[in-house]
Amino acid sequence: MRHWRTWHRPLVLFAAAMAVMAVVSGVGLLVDDRVLAGSAIWSKPFKFAVSFVVYALALAWMLTLLTRGRRAGWWAGTVVALSSLVEMAIITLQVVRGKRSHFNVATPFDASLFSAMAVTVVILWAGTLVIAILLLRARIADRASAWAIRSGVFLALAGAGVGFVMTRPTTEQRAAGDLDTAEVIGAHAVGVPDGGPSMPLTGWSTTGGDLRIPHFVGMHALQLLPLFLMALVALAPRFARLRDPRVRLRLVLVASGAYAALTALVTWQALRGQSLIHPDGVTLVTAALVLAATAAGAYGALRPRSGAPATAVAEKELVS
């Protein structure tokens, strides 16, 4: 991994600011007993700050891998950092005011803030898309690394895209009547109101679907798939099969497919208004099929094949 001083500086500075914000929000959770929409009022900025730290640092590192379009990548990363900063500022402002930040159209001011957040999310998504396209064009020598990074960033885009679904009026909101006079438009939950019974820490609904689950799962592919490959490399000295770069590539492909299937599964589950912890038979069967396919893929990836073993080049790669 390249030295952190070469990472994209605006994204690193933004991550540092979000680390400070996570501490501030943590203090807020301890000293401020206000509750909003069923959750401690500082829980949203805390979760967003922590998520932004890992998201920004992952992108900051990935931008060092570009071999072409470095200038475009720098600007795309800077746009992501600035748009995320604006979004976080609005979330924090609304917490201070004791108001909801998301889906709040109760007053013209609240509606304008929510609209501004929608714009920043679109800009953030577009900036990440530019980075993803540049990574597709980058010449990354290790094929397993290339697949882990590219799969991670495109799955992150899919997860982020779930956020656009949340902003649409729910079926219940449409049935209630005139949306022009509504105080809330859009929701995290599906089939139940926001702010109902929820899981500890995450706040995900325990009685209905919750679109924050696929949003979270998809976005964090950006970190988890590269970390999976790093774990394979770290284990390679102990397990001979993992010393072969072809085996690591096959395992990364299996992991990418499994992660994509998991993201699709929890999205489908949420859209059907089903809680993550109360799956029905169809969901369980589908999950079992995904698990079986993943196990079969991993077995096939690790199974010895005819041909030469890992070459000296592969051994040199591990040492470097």
Rank of each mutant, 00 (worst) to 15 (best):
S43A: 15
V96Y: 02
M117W: 00
W75K: 10
I91N: 07
A56Y: 11
I91D: 09
P108G: 00
G77S: 10
A76N: 03
L134V: 07
R70L: 07
M62K: 03
K99S: 13
T120D: 07
T67R: 04
F52N: 05
T67G: 14
V121L: 14
V130P: 00
S43E: 10
F52Q: 02
V80G: 01
T107D: 02
P45H: 05
V53Q: 08
L129E: 06
R68I: 04
I90K: 12
V121F: 12
P45G: 09
V121E: 11
T67N: 01
F103L: 11
A72D: 01
W125A: 09
S43L: 15
W125E: 10
R97P: 03
V121I: 15
S51Q: 09
I91T: 11
H102Q: 07
K99E: 15
V105M: 03
D110G: 04
S101A: 15
F103D: 11
A76H: 00
G73H: 01
V119A: 14
T120Y: 05
A56G: 13
R139A: 08
T78S: 15
P108L: 00
F109Q: 09
I41C: 09
R100K: 15
I131F: 02
F48D: 05
S115N: 10
L136P: 00
V80I: 13
L57R: 05
F46P: 01
V119I: 13
L85G: 15
L66H: 03
I133M: 08
S43I: 03
R137E: 08
W61H: 15
V53H: 07
S112L: 10
V53S: 08
W61V: 10
G73R: 05
L65A: 10
V50R: 09
N104Q: 07
F52W: 07
L66D: 05
N104Y: 00
M88W: 06
T78G: 11
V80F: 05
K99T: 10
G69E: 02
V119G: 09
S84F: 05
F46W: 04
K47S: 06
E87Q: 14
I90A: 15
F109A: 12
S83F: 06
Q94R: 12
N104R: 01
V80W: 01
F48G: 04
F46K: 01
S83P: 09
I90G: 14
T107V: 08
M62D: 02
Q94C: 08
E87G: 09
V50E: 04
R97H: 11
F109Y: 10
A49E: 12
V122D: 05
A138R: 02
V121T: 14
L124Y: 09
A76G: 03
L85H: 06
A126V: 13
T64Q: 08
H102G: 04
V122K: 04
L65E: 14
